[in-house]
């Protein structure tokens, strides 16, 4: 294979890896929105928090796999606390209150992260087995990026099984279409909400750990990822997992090839794509509700 094609393929893989991580974040966001009607503006902060937890677990245990398991769970724990003790209490006040509350939470998380870990970017080392390059058909791929893609696919498969093959998944899907009705049928919806919120933040947490070795861990992480994830959710349609998946992959590739061809205006491309979609379909590609 000649070097130009090899470069394009490598960029494609980079884009795919980023798109997958983006999907992990955006899927949690869109799931929480579809279920509870809450747009969690602190979602990206949980993503960042998880990256910091990963760094912390790694420096205590020295084991990346333990960090990969524990950090998202710890993040999900904080997410559940937020839902149980803050969001649930102000549900009656409406969406504006929820949006502003989550902005407040994201500011507190940002400040907390700066207090505990400082503002410089912290490196996260991956275990030797994920280090280096693998050669397939004469092309070099960084193993870690392939691992990220694989990890995202595994998580996606688990989520799909949970949603479509279990009773709980059935309840969640019913809750997305009409939460009040499901509640009236005798199912403890507040508990289900709490569970969904936990799973959503867990997904963000997995993404946070996956991205930590690539981008390093710094307080600006939430802004960078959060904005992209919001654009994905808005463009794909609020509450639509399918839309989030497709748009995440498009954006991953768009940013990877965009940086290569017009590096100056790469960030604008995503906004442009979003603007065009929204002008044609104000509810997003696959969105049906506001």
């Amino acid at each position: 294979m000649d070097p130009t094609t090899a470069m394009y393929v490598a960029q494609g893989i980079h884009g795919l890896a980023y798109g997958m991580v983006l999907f992990l974040v955006a899927s949690g966001l869109t799931m929480i929105f579809g279920m509870m009607g809450i747009l969690n503006l602190a979602h990206a902060s949980f993503f960042m928090l998880s990256a910091y937890f990963c760094y912390q677990f790694l420096s205590i245990t020295g084991n990346f796999w333990a960090a990969l398991l524990l950090a998202p769970v710890a993040t999900a724990f904080f997410g559940v606390l937020l839902e149980r003790f803050l969001l649930r209490k102000i549900h009656a006040f409406g969406h504006v209150g929820e949006l502003i509350l989550t902005v407040g939470v994201s500011l507190v998380i940002l400040a907390g992260v700066k207090i505990f870990w400082g503002t410089e970017s912290l490196p996260v080392k991956v275990p030797p087995i994920l280090h280096g390059l693998v050669t397939i058909k004469g092309l070099d791929y960084p193993i870690y990026r392939l691992f990220v893609i694989g990890l995202a696919l595994v998580v996606l498969a688990i989520m799909a099984l949970l949603l479509y093959k279990t009773r709980l998944g059935k309840i969640v899907r019913a809750g997305v279409s009409d939460a009040d009705m499901v509640n009236a049928l005798g199912i403890n919806m507040p508990l289900v909400f709490m569970f969904v919120f936990g799973v959503g933040t867990w997904l963000a947490g997995v993404a946070g750990v996956a991205i930590a070795p690539i981008l390093t861990v710094f307080p600006g992480l939430a802004d960078q990822m959060g904005m992209d994830a919001f654009i994905v959710v808005v463009t794909g349609g609020f509450g639509s997992l399918k839309g989030a998946f497709i748009v995440s992959l498009i954006f991953g590739e768009l940013s990877a090839y965009g940086v290569q061809f017009f590096s100056q205006l790469a960030p604008v491309l995503m906004f442009l794509f979003m603007a065009i979609v929204l002008i044609i379909k104000p509810m997003g590609l696959f969105g049906e509700r506001e």
């Binding site: 803050l86 006040f93 902005v103 407040g104 500011l107 940002l110 400040a111 907390g112 700066k114 207090i115």
Partner: peptide, 16 residues
């Protein structure tokens, strides 16, 4: 130096 922390906490308290 922690203006974000103060602003965030105030927002949460006001809403709650």
């Amino acid at each position: 130096q922690r203006v974000e922390l103060v602003v965030g906490l105030i927002l949460i308290l006001v809403i709650m």
